[in-house]
């Protein structure tokens, strides 16, 4: 289970970078499971709440060694990340006032914005182009940007609307069709 420590320590950039490493280690080197099995776990990690890496690590740990396994793998994944940030946060606060560090941070800030825009475009491209997605996207943008509704309510609302529109509505229509003839 120490293997997850390696994932935590070596994966710069989070999320999907970690998953690529996981595949290499778990499937090819240790042969703990097949690619297909791991893919199933990753898909589950993507559709449950929380960071994907943490979800997948929990699940892989559980499959391999039960509840203890999942706890060990999550701890191993989280500890290095936690320790590094804990160590640098002190320096960050003192160094921030240095003009050269401040200049570099200014550049980093701009780069981070580019990354976020990039992530947003990537996620947007993955959506199917239809009315429902278009309206949901615009509505959530508008609600948070202007009346500044909290992002939490928007997500809760979106889950509910999804349930009604994609879940209840087709079933309701189907029932009506059956009753008509």
């Amino acid at each position: 289970m120490l293997v997850f420590g390696k994932f935590g320590a070596l994966t710069f950039g989070g999320g999907y970078a970690i998953i690529a490493l996981m595949e290499d280690e778990i499937v090819h080197r240790r042969r703990w499971m097949t690619t297909d099995e791991l893919m199933d776990l990753i898909a589950i990690g993507e559709s449950t709440p929380g960071p994907i890496a943490v979800n997948t690590a929990t699940f892989v740990g559980y499959k391999l060694a039960g509840i203890i396994g999942s706890i060990v793998s999550v701890l191993a994944l989280v500890l290095p990340a936690w320790a590094v940030i804990f160590a640098i946060s002190g320096c960050y606060l003192t160094l921030r006032d240095n003009p050269w560090v401040a200049a570099a941070l200014g550049g980093i800030r701009v780069a981070a914005i580019v990354l976020i825009i990039q992530a947003c475009l990537r996620m947007g491209m993955k959506l199917k182009r239809n009315w429902f997605n278009g309206i949901m996207l615009t509505a959530s943008f508008y609600l948070v940007a202007f009346p500044s509704v909290s992002a939490f309510y928007v997500i809760m609302g979106a889950l509910l609307i999804g349930l009604l529109w994609h879940g209840i509505r087709p079933r309701f229509l189907l029932k009506n069709q059956e009753e008509q003839p």
């Binding site: 947007g124 996207l137 999804g162 994609h166």
Partner: peptide, 11 residues
């Protein structure tokens, strides 16, 4: 339902 909303929020 949540997927498009998440993109909107990130925007």
């Amino acid at each position: 339902g949540a997927k498009p909303a998440v993109v909107g929020l990130l925007a």
